[in-house]
Write a protein that binds this DNA or RNA. Structure first.
Length: 431
RNA sequence: UCCCCAGUAGCUCAGUUGGUCAGAGCAUCCGACUGUUAAUCGGAGGGUCGUAGGUUCAAGUCCUACCUGGGGAGCCA
């Protein structure tokens, strides 16, 4: 007996097959009954006709509840009334694993607290499957994009000594070495690898112990961080717009059905093509002030400012060359305006905010030492990082793209917590 | 860390100026139904109103504290 997955049923029309999966709906009209089965590739309707069935099979139908796992055998036939266009005329039913009648997630609205408490079961819903498929498609597209362009993927450590940026770190004891910290970026290691291999990227989880409670924050999230030798800030932004456009195009090409399941307005994605508008920080401040913002030169841009700036565009926007004080120590001083650094934030449209932070890196040994001093960072922790400038320094630039923010934007979701299977947030460690 | 909001049945919620306010829908269970699409129809069971105090003749409702979440800010991706 062949056991196709539900998405393959159409190529088995007329054959008798066994479908294995979980019951999502049960409906009965006395002598004819329907069970909808889900297997992760789609849903299929199984039809039970009492007069044509072994009484034991009809009796077994009566024991089907939400999420009972089953193996249903029957003939595949085209049926316009059935979800998916094909249904199974049942001849045999095996109940593999019964499911008590208190299965918590119903086909109706639930509150977010309840859903997150039941995340392990919530994953079974069609909407969550669609999101997971888009995320998966993007992860594959990331790999393809860099592979095609000759980048090496470098996996950087998650357990690190104190190094990175300024915001909160998770810590843990580490043998005789004292405290280890969960990485909040792989960038500094990526810079070392760029000097070794030229074009590299990292792809892995990162951790921030910030007590952020917003729709854009998780304490554990996945980041893609390319680092390219001989790229300047301008090259860096070109790589970013090519990259983001590639990702969007891939999902539009291969995951239409999932975007439809999510009711995403794809017209808002089809305009995402290079080049992306570039706005100097200084100009951005002037524009924002004209629009009524209270922002002053030297301030970082707040969430409202970002939204205000992006509202006139149909694609992501770069805001570049922020004041030095607002940005990290490793960013290269802007020779045309030393108050600023050669950096960019890539802001997604529709209010999704920053999906990328990038910069050209400071390649001057003395200036980098000075920045580490000015920021009050522990110089000895950065010894190896400084040696990258001591032994054959080089122009280089890179960026970090937040995977969850990107998936949330492309899927059109209100919150990034749905975008990862088991989100880690300030008040959630389970399941 | 700060600001705002919420907590009533398994779930989603209603509950008016404090006075039949212990309610609905869905789910569950029982029954009916030969093409259902979150099926429909009839019936039944189901509650320490987040916790602890307080005000009052009377508190789901007002006050205080705490707990648990949610939304936002800051910070960032």
């Amino acid at each position: 007996m062949s056991t196709p997955r539900i998405a393959e049923l159409q190529s088995h029309a007329g054959q008798t097959v066994t479908v294995r999966g979980w019951v999502t709906h049960v409906r009965s009209s006395g002598k004819i009954a329907f069970a909808v089965i889900r297997d992760g590739t789609g849903v299929a309707q199984a039809v039970f006709v009492k007069s044509q069935l072994d009484p034991a099979v009809w009796e077994a139908f009566g024991r089907l509840t939400l999420e009972t796992s089953v193996a249903v055998t029957g003939q595949v036939r085209a049926e316009p009334r059935a979800p998916g266009g094909f249904e199974l005329g049942v001849t045999a039913l095996e109940i593999v694993g019964p499911s008590p009648s208190d299965y918590p997630i119903q086909p109706k609205e639930h509150g977010i607290d309840f859903l997150l408490d039941h995340r392990h079961l919530w994953l079974r819903s069609p909407r969550q499957r669609a999101i997971a498929a888009v995320r998966h498609e993007l992860e594959q597209a990331v790999q393809d994009f860099f592979y095609e362009r000759g980048f090496l993927r470098v996996d950087t450590p998650i357990l690190t000594a104190a190094i990175g940026e300024r915001s909160g770190l998770f810590s843990t004891e580490y043998f005789e070495e004292g405290t280890a910290y969960l990485a909040q970026t792989g960038q500094l290691y990526g810079e070392a690898a760029a000097a070794a291999y030229g074009k590299i990227y990292t792809f892995g989880p990162t951790f921030r112990a910030e007590k952020s409670k917003t729709r854009r924050h998780l304490t554990e999230f996945w980041m893609i961080e390319p680092e390219v030798a001989w790229n300047d800030s301008n090259d860096n932004m070109r790589l970013q717009e090519d990259f983001v456009s590639f990702l969007v195009a891939r999902v539009l090409e291969r995951r239409r059905a999932e975007l439809q399941e999510l009711e995403r307005d794809v017209a808002r994605l089809e305009t995402v093509k290079p080049p992306f508008p570039r706005i100097n920080y200084t100009d951005a401040v002037a524009v924002l002030q004209k629009k009524g913002s209270a922002v002053k030169w030297g301030d970082d841009l707040g969430a409202d400012d970002e939204a205000l700036l992006v509202e006139d565009y149909d694609r992501p926007v770069f805001v570049m060359n922020y004041p030095k004080e607002a940005k990290a120590f490793y960013m290269k001083e802007n020779p045309d305006d030393p108050r600023t650094v050669l950096c960019d934030d890539c802001l997604a449209p529709e209010g999704y905010g920053e999906i990328i932070g990038g910069s050209q890196r400071e390649d001057d040994y003395d200036k980098l030492v000075q920045r580490i001093r000015d920021e009050g960072l522990p110089m000895d922790a950065y010894g190896w990082y400084l040696e990258l400038r001591k032994y054959g320094t080089f122009t280089h630039a890179g960026f970090g793209l937040g995977l969850e923010r990107t998936v949330a934007w492309i899927c059109g979701l209100q919150h990034i917590r749905e975008v990862i299977a088991f989100p880690r947030m300030m008040y959630r460690l389970k399941p």
